[in-house]
Protein backbone atom coordinates (compact mmCIF):
# COMPACT_ATOMS: atom_id res chain seq x y z
CA UNK A 1 0.00 0.00 0.00
CA UNK A 2 1.68 3.20 -1.06
CA UNK A 3 1.23 6.66 0.31
CA UNK A 4 -0.92 7.90 -2.58
CA UNK A 5 -3.33 5.06 -2.00
CA UNK A 6 -3.63 5.95 1.68
CA UNK A 7 -4.26 9.62 0.88
CA UNK A 8 -6.89 8.63 -1.65
CA UNK A 9 -8.66 6.37 0.83
CA UNK A 10 -8.31 8.87 3.65
CA UNK A 11 -9.91 11.67 1.67
CA UNK A 12 -12.63 9.28 0.50
CA UNK A 13 -13.41 8.44 4.10
CA UNK A 14 -13.45 12.13 5.03
CA UNK A 15 -15.87 12.86 2.20
CA UNK A 16 -18.24 10.09 3.32
CA UNK A 17 -17.94 11.11 6.95
CA UNK A 18 -18.52 14.79 6.34
CA UNK A 19 -21.80 14.15 4.51
CA UNK A 20 -23.14 11.82 7.19
CA UNK A 21 -21.87 14.15 9.93
CA UNK A 22 -23.82 17.06 8.41
CA UNK A 23 -27.07 15.13 8.57
CA UNK A 24 -26.38 13.24 11.78
CA UNK A 25 -25.42 16.39 13.68
CA UNK A 26 -28.80 17.90 12.86
CA UNK A 27 -30.47 14.64 13.86
CA UNK A 28 -28.58 14.54 17.14
CA UNK A 29 -29.49 18.15 17.98
CA UNK A 30 -33.19 17.61 17.40
CA UNK A 31 -32.99 14.26 19.21
CA UNK A 32 -31.52 16.03 22.22
CA UNK A 33 -33.87 18.93 22.19
CA UNK A 34 -37.13 17.26 21.28
CA UNK A 35 -36.41 13.60 21.89
CA UNK A 36 -37.30 12.71 18.34
CA UNK A 37 -35.58 11.49 15.20
CA UNK A 38 -36.66 12.85 11.87
CA UNK A 39 -37.38 9.71 9.87
CA UNK A 40 -37.84 11.87 6.77
CA UNK A 41 -34.20 13.04 6.88
CA UNK A 42 -33.39 11.07 3.75
CA UNK A 43 -36.23 12.82 1.96
CA UNK A 44 -34.97 16.23 3.04
CA UNK A 45 -31.63 15.24 1.49
CA UNK A 46 -33.53 14.32 -1.67
CA UNK A 47 -35.21 17.72 -1.65
CA UNK A 48 -31.79 19.35 -1.48
CA UNK A 49 -30.60 17.34 -4.48
CA UNK A 50 -33.70 18.23 -6.50
CA UNK A 51 -33.37 21.94 -5.68
CA UNK A 52 -29.86 21.93 -7.15
CA UNK A 53 -31.14 19.97 -10.12
CA UNK A 54 -33.94 22.45 -10.72
CA UNK A 55 -31.88 25.60 -10.32
CA UNK A 56 -29.07 24.30 -12.50
CA UNK A 57 -31.62 23.25 -15.13
CA UNK A 58 -32.97 26.80 -15.43
CA UNK A 59 -29.44 28.06 -15.91
CA UNK A 60 -28.62 29.47 -12.49
CA UNK A 61 -25.20 28.83 -10.95
CA UNK A 62 -24.68 25.73 -8.89
CA UNK A 63 -24.01 27.77 -5.73
CA UNK A 64 -27.45 29.34 -5.98
CA UNK A 65 -28.92 25.85 -6.03
CA UNK A 66 -27.04 24.90 -2.86
CA UNK A 67 -28.15 28.06 -1.06
CA UNK A 68 -31.72 27.51 -2.24
CA UNK A 69 -31.52 23.94 -0.91
CA UNK A 70 -30.63 25.30 2.54
CA UNK A 71 -33.45 27.83 2.46
CA UNK A 72 -36.03 25.32 1.22
CA UNK A 73 -34.88 22.76 3.78
CA UNK A 74 -35.12 25.35 6.54
CA UNK A 75 -38.59 26.53 5.54
CA UNK A 76 -40.00 23.03 5.08
CA UNK A 77 -38.49 22.00 8.40
CA UNK A 78 -40.02 24.99 10.14
CA UNK A 79 -43.36 24.18 8.58
CA UNK A 80 -43.10 20.54 9.69
CA UNK A 81 -42.23 21.52 13.22
CA UNK A 82 -45.05 24.01 13.52
CA UNK A 83 -47.67 21.98 11.72
CA UNK A 84 -46.87 18.48 12.86
CA UNK A 85 -44.34 18.04 15.63
CA UNK A 86 -45.39 20.77 18.02
CA UNK A 87 -48.54 18.94 19.00
CA UNK A 88 -46.57 15.85 20.00
CA UNK A 89 -44.13 17.34 22.46
CA UNK A 90 -45.18 14.66 24.93
CA UNK A 91 -45.49 11.70 22.56
CA UNK A 92 -42.15 11.34 20.77
CA UNK A 93 -43.04 8.06 19.07
CA UNK A 94 -46.07 9.65 17.44
CA UNK A 95 -43.91 12.54 16.30
CA UNK A 96 -41.43 10.24 14.60
CA UNK A 97 -44.28 8.36 12.94
CA UNK A 98 -45.56 11.72 11.73
CA UNK A 99 -42.19 12.38 10.09
CA UNK A 100 -42.36 8.89 8.62
CA UNK A 101 -45.68 9.71 6.94
CA UNK A 102 -44.27 13.03 5.83
CA UNK A 103 -41.38 11.23 4.15
CA UNK A 104 -43.81 9.13 2.11
CA UNK A 105 -45.72 12.26 1.07
CA UNK A 106 -42.55 14.13 0.05
CA UNK A 107 -41.33 11.17 -2.01
CA UNK A 108 -44.63 10.74 -3.82
CA UNK A 109 -45.06 14.45 -4.53
CA UNK A 110 -41.55 14.66 -5.98
CA UNK A 111 -42.27 11.56 -8.03
CA UNK A 112 -45.48 13.13 -9.39
CA UNK A 113 -43.60 16.28 -10.41
CA UNK A 114 -40.24 14.95 -11.60
CA UNK A 115 -41.04 11.34 -12.46
CA UNK A 116 -39.47 8.18 -11.18
CA UNK A 117 -36.35 8.08 -13.34
CA UNK A 118 -32.87 8.90 -12.16
CA UNK A 119 -31.55 12.28 -13.17
CA UNK A 120 -28.05 13.66 -13.05
CA UNK A 121 -26.47 16.92 -11.96
CA UNK A 122 -23.32 17.91 -13.77
CA UNK A 123 -20.23 18.26 -11.59
CA UNK A 124 -19.57 22.01 -11.31
CA UNK A 125 -15.87 21.49 -10.50
CA UNK A 126 -14.82 18.54 -12.65
CA UNK A 127 -11.04 18.85 -12.25
CA UNK A 128 -8.81 17.11 -9.80
CA UNK A 129 -5.70 18.00 -7.85
CA UNK A 130 -2.72 15.95 -6.82
CA UNK A 131 -2.31 15.46 -3.11
CA UNK A 132 0.59 13.36 -1.91
CA UNK A 133 0.74 11.61 -5.24
CA UNK A 134 -2.99 10.85 -5.34
CA UNK A 135 -5.46 12.38 -7.78
CA UNK A 136 -8.37 13.77 -5.84
CA UNK A 137 -11.49 15.42 -7.21
CA UNK A 138 -11.66 19.14 -6.46
CA UNK A 139 -15.37 18.86 -5.91
CA UNK A 140 -14.91 16.32 -3.13
CA UNK A 141 -12.38 18.61 -1.46
CA UNK A 142 -14.86 21.48 -1.61
CA UNK A 143 -17.54 19.20 -0.19
CA UNK A 144 -15.31 18.30 2.76
CA UNK A 145 -14.42 21.96 3.24
CA UNK A 146 -18.02 23.19 3.24
CA UNK A 147 -19.08 20.48 5.69
CA UNK A 148 -16.23 21.23 8.07
CA UNK A 149 -17.01 24.96 7.99
CA UNK A 150 -20.74 24.45 8.62
CA UNK A 151 -20.18 21.93 11.42
CA UNK A 152 -17.48 24.09 12.99
CA UNK A 153 -19.68 27.17 12.90
CA UNK A 154 -22.52 25.32 14.57
CA UNK A 155 -20.21 23.99 17.29
CA UNK A 156 -18.94 27.51 17.95
CA UNK A 157 -22.47 28.87 18.28
CA UNK A 158 -23.39 26.09 20.70
CA UNK A 159 -20.35 26.54 22.93
CA UNK A 160 -19.74 30.28 22.87
CA UNK A 161 -23.20 31.85 22.88
CA UNK A 162 -26.03 31.68 25.46
CA UNK A 163 -27.84 29.59 22.87
CA UNK A 164 -25.89 26.52 24.04
CA UNK A 165 -27.14 26.81 27.62
CA UNK A 166 -30.66 27.47 26.36
CA UNK A 167 -30.58 24.43 24.11
CA UNK A 168 -29.45 22.28 27.02
CA UNK A 169 -32.05 23.80 29.32
CA UNK A 170 -34.86 23.03 26.91
CA UNK A 171 -33.43 19.58 26.23
CA UNK A 172 -33.47 18.84 29.94
CA UNK A 173 -36.92 20.24 30.76
CA UNK A 174 -38.80 22.37 28.25
CA UNK A 175 -41.60 23.37 30.62
CA UNK A 176 -39.23 24.56 33.30
CA UNK A 177 -37.01 26.39 30.82
CA UNK A 178 -40.14 28.20 29.58
CA UNK A 179 -40.98 29.45 33.06
CA UNK A 180 -37.39 30.72 33.28
CA UNK A 181 -37.90 32.88 30.23
CA UNK A 182 -36.55 30.64 27.46
CA UNK A 183 -38.82 30.69 24.43
CA UNK A 184 -38.62 26.96 24.03
CA UNK A 185 -41.17 26.67 21.24
CA UNK A 186 -39.24 29.03 19.04
CA UNK A 187 -35.96 27.38 19.97
CA UNK A 188 -37.27 23.95 18.98
CA UNK A 189 -38.59 25.38 15.75
CA UNK A 190 -35.24 26.89 14.85
CA UNK A 191 -33.23 23.82 15.82
CA UNK A 192 -35.46 21.48 13.84
CA UNK A 193 -35.40 23.79 10.84
CA UNK A 194 -31.60 23.99 11.05
CA UNK A 195 -31.42 20.19 11.15
CA UNK A 196 -33.56 19.83 8.03
CA UNK A 197 -31.58 22.61 6.34
CA UNK A 198 -28.40 20.65 7.06
CA UNK A 199 -29.92 17.50 5.58
CA UNK A 200 -30.97 19.45 2.54
CA UNK A 201 -27.50 20.99 2.25
CA UNK A 202 -25.94 17.54 2.41
CA UNK A 203 -28.30 16.37 -0.32
CA UNK A 204 -27.44 19.32 -2.54
CA UNK A 205 -23.72 18.66 -2.04
CA UNK A 206 -23.88 15.00 -3.02
CA UNK A 207 -26.20 15.60 -5.98
CA UNK A 208 -23.37 15.73 -8.58
CA UNK A 209 -21.86 12.51 -7.21
CA UNK A 210 -24.91 10.28 -7.31
CA UNK A 211 -28.14 9.35 -9.08
CA UNK A 212 -30.87 11.82 -8.18
CA UNK A 213 -34.21 10.06 -7.74
CA UNK A 214 -37.21 10.26 -5.41
CA UNK A 215 -36.03 7.25 -3.38
CA UNK A 216 -32.38 8.31 -3.11
CA UNK A 217 -32.70 9.30 0.55
CA UNK A 218 -33.25 5.78 1.79
CA UNK A 219 -29.76 4.78 0.74
CA UNK A 220 -28.32 7.28 3.22
CA UNK A 221 -30.79 6.79 6.08
CA UNK A 222 -29.17 3.56 7.18
CA UNK A 223 -25.76 5.11 7.79
CA UNK A 224 -27.23 8.28 9.37
CA UNK A 225 -29.28 6.34 11.86
CA UNK A 226 -26.42 4.05 12.80
CA UNK A 227 -24.33 7.18 13.40
CA UNK A 228 -27.00 8.52 15.77
CA UNK A 229 -27.34 5.16 17.54
CA UNK A 230 -23.58 4.90 18.00
CA UNK A 231 -23.03 8.57 18.82
CA UNK A 232 -26.20 9.17 20.86
CA UNK A 233 -27.52 12.66 21.35
CA UNK A 234 -24.14 14.23 22.05
CA UNK A 235 -22.94 16.27 19.14
CA UNK A 236 -19.24 15.58 19.62
CA UNK A 237 -19.83 11.84 19.88
CA UNK A 238 -21.87 11.97 16.69
CA UNK A 239 -18.92 13.49 14.84
CA UNK A 240 -16.61 10.74 16.12
CA UNK A 241 -19.19 8.10 15.19
CA UNK A 242 -19.58 9.53 11.69
CA UNK A 243 -15.84 9.23 11.14
CA UNK A 244 -15.58 5.74 12.68
CA UNK A 245 -18.44 4.43 10.59
CA UNK A 246 -17.07 5.98 7.41
CA UNK A 247 -13.76 4.18 8.07
CA UNK A 248 -15.47 0.83 8.65
CA UNK A 249 -17.72 1.29 5.65
CA UNK A 250 -15.03 2.34 3.17
CA UNK A 251 -12.43 -0.16 4.30
CA UNK A 252 -14.85 -3.10 4.39
CA UNK A 253 -16.30 -2.21 1.00
CA UNK A 254 -12.78 -2.10 -0.41
CA UNK A 255 -11.62 -5.36 1.16
CA UNK A 256 -14.82 -7.44 0.95
CA UNK A 257 -18.02 -6.00 -0.54
CA UNK A 258 -20.82 -3.54 0.18
CA UNK A 259 -23.16 -6.12 1.76
CA UNK A 260 -20.57 -7.09 4.35
CA UNK A 261 -19.81 -3.39 4.86
CA UNK A 262 -23.47 -2.75 5.68
CA UNK A 263 -23.59 -5.69 8.04
CA UNK A 264 -20.37 -4.55 9.70
CA UNK A 265 -21.90 -1.12 10.35
CA UNK A 266 -25.03 -2.77 11.70
CA UNK A 267 -22.90 -4.92 13.96
CA UNK A 268 -21.18 -1.74 15.20
CA UNK A 269 -24.53 -0.29 16.23
CA UNK A 270 -25.40 -3.45 18.13
CA UNK A 271 -22.00 -3.73 19.77
CA UNK A 272 -21.96 -0.11 20.88
CA UNK A 273 -25.47 -0.36 22.33
CA UNK A 274 -24.68 -3.65 24.01
CA UNK A 275 -21.47 -2.29 25.52
CA UNK A 276 -22.80 1.08 26.68
CA UNK A 277 -24.21 1.63 30.11
CA UNK A 278 -27.59 3.20 29.47
CA UNK A 279 -27.15 6.83 30.36
CA UNK A 280 -29.11 9.46 28.53
CA UNK A 281 -28.08 12.91 29.59
CA UNK A 282 -24.79 14.68 29.62
CA UNK A 283 -22.97 17.57 28.07
CA UNK A 284 -23.95 18.65 24.59
CA UNK A 285 -20.48 19.04 23.12
Amino acid sequence: MDFAFLVDQGLGILATASVSALVAMGLALSFRLMGIINLASGDFMMIGAYSVLTFVAIGLPYVVGVLAACVIGFLLGALTERGLLQRFSRAPELAILGTFGLGIVIRQVVELIYGKNFQFVENPLPGSVEIGGAEFSIYRLVLIGVSVVVIGALLLVLTLTPLGVKVRAVAADGDLAETLGVRSRRLKLVVFAVSTAMASLAGSLIAPLTNVGPGMGNAYLFVMFVVVIVGGARVSMVLVAALAIAIVQNVTTLVVDSLVAKLAILAMAFIVLAASRPSTKGAIV
Binding site: P162, V165, K166, R168, A169, A171, A172, D173, L176, A177, L180, G181, V182, K281, G282
Partner: peptide
Protein backbone atom coordinates in the same frame (compact mmCIF):
# COMPACT_ATOMS: atom_id res chain seq x y z
CA UNK B 1 -37.76 19.38 40.37
CA UNK B 2 -37.66 23.17 40.45
CA UNK B 3 -34.23 23.43 38.78
CA UNK B 4 -32.57 22.12 35.64
CA UNK B 5 -30.76 19.01 36.79
CA UNK B 6 -28.46 18.67 33.78
CA UNK B 7 -27.07 22.19 34.05
CA UNK B 8 -24.55 23.31 36.62
CA UNK B 9 -25.65 25.52 39.49
CA UNK B 10 -24.02 28.51 37.80
CA UNK B 11 -25.75 27.76 34.48
CA UNK B 12 -29.11 27.50 36.22
CA UNK B 13 -28.52 31.03 37.47
CA UNK B 14 -27.06 32.37 34.24
CA UNK B 15 -30.19 31.26 32.39
CA UNK B 16 -32.22 33.91 34.23
Amino acid sequence: QPILRDLTVAENLRLV
